[in-house]
Design a binder for these strands. Structure first.
Lengths: 202, 202
DNA sequence: CCGAGATCGAACCGATCGGTACGACCTGAG
DNA sequence: CTCAGGTCGTACCGATCGGTTCGATCTCGG
């Protein structure tokens, strides 16, 4: 960390450093669980610097959530892509990746959903909705390539499994949550791809 | 509301009134989104009265979450029981009830999960875990009566659908979330009750 | 009719909040 | 060497926070 004193070589580097450190601290403590003053000492930056880069605590929060959303979305997409071309394998890889996340001792649920639950600012809710939309796109794509009869609906059901597994892992028991969700997802996938058995009851 | 002035007929009635009004206000504004002073004026009670009944803002929050957990748990259980004896019908009734909740214009997600996401107090996290446990008991019971090969696992998967549907409805799109989750739940139920098709892939 | 006690409204407390201002320092570009 | 500007540390600001106290008021049981 070449942030020595006075003018750093690159202001953009300072901004990135703040963003990264603030993400971890705000995730651990909650958005309202720590003040700007203590946050700055934990990050190792002065309040003036933080406010020049982000203008407002809310500005920092929004920038951090946006960055986090992009990171975890591409992380999940890459996990799926690395599993090959078979939709079932891709789907399984997504839930395996989630399980590794749940096993992280600092796992506290999805930071973006946590933020939306506490912060009633429109910008945060917008970021959250878009975040879920990206997940939905990924899952609907898998459903479509799997030959599901109704990819949008199956994608939405898979999204519910992803978010439900995260909620259960965060607030009830992380052990095996990803595996259970994966098995359910694969069952839904195969049922939707081969609508032979009766699936509509009413 | 016979809360005229001075001594009310029943202090317990005052407590219940506070609890009910505070539940609505704190759900709408968030636990940290409103101070005790404004909360008291919205409720129509003095700070002294609130503090005598609950001791602390956290005390009020915990009492309210506990009451809320019991209410919605029994509400879901009654919805299931009213659907008759068939496990599939009971499961469908649960998700139909959830959809009616999602359609409420003041729906903002599960108050208990929202609280757990923002409030890092142990008591709140305990209430949340127990709350999810009650849901799990209800769903595992349905899974068991449906003849699932592994009721605990299926119950957990159904819990993920319930919580996932709630998250999606709250933060993405409430329309049809309950129906989509219901269809997925019934698919899982029939697949688990009749493990004829290959369900274990690896 | 009288005292116990529940309630109100408002004043008050120290602490903390988000945000600003300022002087000093250091670095890189010209 | 000089200067522009990014950064630090600290002090400071008004507002709000959770919580306490107090006198006045009202209701009910005896």
């Amino acid at each position: 960390m070449p942030v020595t004193k006075g003018s750093t070589i690159d202001p953009a580097r300072t901004r990135a450093t703040i963003l990264e450190a603030a993400t971890a601290v705000l995730y651990e403590r909650g958005l309202d669980g720590i003040g700007v003053a203590e946050l700055c000492t934990r990050i190792g930056v002065s309040k003036e610097t933080l406010y020049r880069h982000f203008g407002t605590k809310d500005g920092l929060v929004e920038a951090m959530l946006q960055a986090r959303s992009e990171r975890v979305t591409s992380w999940l997409a890459e996990a799926a892509a690395a599993a090959g071309d078979a939709p079932g394998e891709q789907l399984a890889a997504v839930f395996d990746a989630l399980q590794r996340w749940y096993d992280d001792p600092v796992f506290r649920g999805c930071a973006i959903l946590n933020a939306a639950a506490q912060h009633h600012v429109d910008a945060v809710r917008t970021i959250t909705a878009r975040h879920l939309g990206h997940y939905l796109d990924l899952l609907t794509g898998i459903a479509s390539r799997a030959g599901a009869v109704d990819p949008p609906v199956l994608g939405r059901q898979l999204l519910m499994l992803v978010e439900g597994a995260t909620v259960v892992a965060a607030h009830h028991d992380p052990a095996g949550a990803g595996e259970a969700a994966r098995q359910a997802a694969l069952t839904l996938l195969s049922a939707a791809a081969r609508p032979s058995v009766q699936d509509a009851c009413s």
